[in-house]
């Protein structure tokens, strides 16, 4: 290698642990006494939630708690935010609908979280999730972004009429119009931004832990930016003050941008530890074992994937 290293291949320091199977990804972590979580998810793209009956699930073996969107709302845990506000050309702010971490009265995509089952093992949580009875009022859905603003299209969020969150313009319209008006040839074409599916090999995962002695929370998650996760989960979602929340991103098995976002599951994992009632039910134990293939259908753009899994 040259003195500067420029032009030389440099061996990576992290490879040693990855090639010997001694890396430390989120789902490799196990905390003493942790309970496992499994989400009940919507099979419908668009539906009202009429009723969530958790009684049968609560009686299943190993079940610690079954929590719903109403429980989450009752604890005043805020919804997920959009981190980049865009104003419309008339100056009005974007009309982003609420995005609770567990749906309350309506689901807006296949896979929307509807209830959380906590059990001693993942198998028990999964079995119990099948016993959660959800009564849906199925609504028409719209899955082609080009059709979302058509007359009569299903309305996804009340706050965003015509499914329009913002109408963003950039540049000098008068100058652009003049340039086109004087152009010798004008070609018109529609440009479709392709759907993005940044499927990293490592599914998303989260482990949350409540420390009673310090009254503080720790979250291990598959994150490309744990500092922003802490800021958002603290300041915007209201889980805990920033100095009472630690977010740890261990080895991350690929992200490609998809692990920049703050996702419902990690918020719910923290809440299940932090919420007084839930913590009481759980004996203040740590909580872990969420594991999902990432990315949700982002109804606001054609950006996102519906490929998800639970372990």
């Amino acid at each position: 290698m040259s003195a500067t290293g420029i032009g030389a291949a440099v061996r990576r320091k992290e490879d040693q642990r990855f090639i010997t199977g001694t890396g430390n990804y989120t789902s490799d972590i196990s905390r003493p006494g942790e309970v496992r979580a499994y989400f009940v998810r919507s099979p419908h793209a668009h539906a009202t939630i009429k009723k969530v009956d958790t009684k049968a699930a609560e009686k299943m073996p190993g079940v610690v708690a079954v929590l719903t969107g109403a429980d989450l709302a009752g604890d005043k845990i805020g919804g997920l935010i959009c981190g980049w506000a865009v104003s419309s050309k008339d100056g009005s702010p974007m009309k982003a609908g609420a995005h609770p971490a567990i749906a309350v009265d309506k689901v807006r995509c296949v896979g929307d979280q509807v209830a959380l089952v906590l059990a001693e093992t993942l198998g028990q949580a999964r079995d119990a999730a099948e016993k959660v009875k959800v009564e849906y009022g199925v609504l028409p859905s719209v899955v082609d972004p080009a059709k979302t603003q058509a007359s009569g299209a299903p309305q996804i969020h009340d706050v965003a009429p015509n499914n329009t969150i913002y109408d963003w313009h950039l540049g000098d319209k008068a100058a652009t119009d003049a340039a086109f008006a004087s152009a010798k040839h004008v070609t018109k074409l529609d440009i479709v931004n392709n759907r993005l599916v940044p499927n990293a090999m490592e599914p998303r995962a989260a482990i949350a832990e409540y420390d009673q002695g310090n009254d503080s929370l720790t979250l291990w998650n598959t994150s490309q930016n744990p500092h922003v996760a802490r800021l958002v989960i603290s300041a915007f979602i209201g889980m805990a003050p920033e100095h009472k929340l630690r977010v740890i991103a261990p080895d991350v098995g690929g992200g490609f941008g998809s692990k920049i976002f703050i996702y419902p599951e990690e918020v719910v994992a923290l809440w299940a530890c932090a919420a007084r009632e839930a913590a009481g039910e759980m004996g203040l134990g740590p909580f872990g074992g969420l594991s999902h293939r990432c990315a949700w259908p982002r109804s606001r753009h054609a950006c996102g994937a519906c490929d998800r899994r639970q372990p």
Partner: peptide
């Protein structure tokens, strides 16, 4: 050989 030839990045698929 995987280390020498940079046959990995995030390491998740590597084992």
């Amino acid at each position: 050989a995987f280390r020498e030839h940079h046959g990995l990045q995030c390491g998740f698929c590597t084992p």
